[in-house]
Amino acid sequence: MGFETFGKVSFTAETRAAAFVDYLGQGKVMATKCKSCGTTCFPPKMDCPTCLKSDTEWVDVNNTGKLITYSMVNYAPAGFEDDAPYAIAVGEFGDGLRIFSRLCKDIKVEEIKPGMKLKLTVIKLPGDRISYEFQKA
């Protein structure tokens, strides 16, 4: 599977980080860690501009976290109209790693509150696409 299957609409096909999608296929959301300086990155990056090395390893993201902020999108950009309304959000996982995604549609609007507990979960999308979302923990 290549990176073009990531998310509702992908704008990237070729990337050194394509294995991210393979991990999603195994139900795992991964971050990267520079083997040289130990910096963990999300979004993942395969290159370290500080060490000038491209020697990174994939590391598990702690999938329990909390909501930092969100917005319920009513007016969606072209390509996303069918999904609206949907909630985009930033969550914080494990040791302060921040991730941007959507909130699961099962979460009721009145339940959404910054600080609420979240579970980071891989989801399948129509058309053999794959992504991740925040579910209620």
Binding site: F3, G7, K8, V9, F11, T15, G79
Partner: peptide, 9 residues
């Protein structure tokens, strides 16, 4: 690569 696929505007 990482955020537009979620429909941010």
């Amino acid at each position: 690569q990482w955020e537009t696929p979620f429909g941010i505007s």
